[in-house]
């Protein structure tokens, strides 16, 4: 691990301002992604700003009937909250489908949203990777691409965003609240938080340098049956090949977000109109324009079949 200096942030504004001002600064929350990447020198921050003392560890009702989740609420605590279990069950289910008990005790809401891809070449500093080293090429295209993305990808990068929680947040229309280095606050819809790679896969989010996430807000509950179905290579403690987060109403209408296939939680609102008609039509809409590799084309079929299983479960 490269040397770095360390400080504990006193306030959110201060943290954001100092992060923007200090070259090579990064926030550290649970550290379960950042420290992993620092050990292998994929991440080499010169300065760490520990945000764990900032509070932001509460889950509170909002004035319009929703829920405001602090950026530092641990994944375990979020999944266990009775209001989440009752009104936003999809979020609980997605959280407990991810990582392990130990990791969820450390992982935070903001850290989970901003975790980086698990592309094996991103992790291997001997390999070309446009995300890790812009302009160096992409070893995954033409390499071992089975776990990687099929849609929203580019000629430069086919990595996926690995978060389960983010899939639920996308289906629930969450909003990310931040503080910028100049002290102003803003709200970013979850749909706009993650960027597609295009020609700049190293730029992953809409956040500015030093911008700190303070909370994630959920709008008022919409009812329906909440299902998170994750397909992976082993039954637990593995990232998704494909995952479906769905909220389905009695009349068959609903929302679907898909994980494991794209650089961001994948949702196409227009495709949801076809939901009462069955999985095939919805999958066609969700996957229009897909560009799978030879190794990961199976994900297209897997999305349709997993969605079919989810819809059948909702009807049962």
């Amino acid at each position: 691990m490269r040397p770095f200096t360390y400080e504990r942030a006193a306030t959110a504004k201060d943290a954001a301002a100092r992060a923007a001002r200090t070259p090579g600064a990064k926030f550290i929350a649970g550290g379960t992604n950042l420290l992993d990447l620092m050990k292998i020198e994929v991440e080499t921050p010169a300065h760490l700003i520990d945000v764990n003392g900032l509070g932001f560890d509460r889950i509170e009702p909002t004035a319009d009937g929703g829920l405001r989740i602090g950026a530092l609420v641990r994944n375990t605590d979020l999944a266990a909250d009775m209001r989440v279990r009752r009104d936003y069950a999809l979020l609980s289910r997605a959280l407990v489908a991810g990582a392990s008990g130990q990791l969820r005790n450390k992982a935070t809401t903001a850290g989970n949203l901003l975790q980086r891809t698990r592309c094996p070449y991103f992790y291997d500093t001997n390999q070309p990777c446009n995300k890790r080293k812009p302009g160096s090429g992409c070893a995954a295209i033409g390499g071992f691409s089975r776990p990687l993305g099929v849609i929203g990808v580019s000629e430069e990068c086919i990595a996926t965003h690995p978060s389960d929680m983010a899939i639920a947040m996308r289906a629930l229309d969450a909003t990310v609240e931040t503080v910028k280095p100049d002290g102003t606050a803003r709200s970013v819809p979850i749909a706009d938080l993650h960027r597609l790679p295009g020609t700049t896969p190293q730029i992953e989010t809409a956040l500015d340098d030093g911008e700190l996430i303070t909370a994630v807000t959920l709008p008022k509950p919409i009812g329906g049956t909440h299902i998170y179905h994750k397909v992976r290579d082993r039954a637990s403690y593995a990232f998704a090949l494909v995952s479906i987060g769905a909220i389905i109403q009695k009349d068959g209408s609903g929302r679907v977000a898909v994980g494991g296939i794209a650089p961001k939680p994948w949702r196409v609102e227009a495709a949801e109109a076809a939901m009462p008609g069955g999985a095939r039509a919805v999958a066609d809409g969700l996957l229009a324009g897909a560009r799978p590799t030879q190794e990961n084309g199976f994900k297209l079929t897997l999305v349709e079949r997993t969605l079919g299983a989810v819809m059948a479960q909702a009807r049962a």
Partner: peptide, 10 residues
């Protein structure tokens, strides 16, 4: 009282 992975903790 809570379990964590001590390898991913500073």
């Amino acid at each position: 009282g809570e379990r964590i992975n001590s390898c991913l903790a500073l």
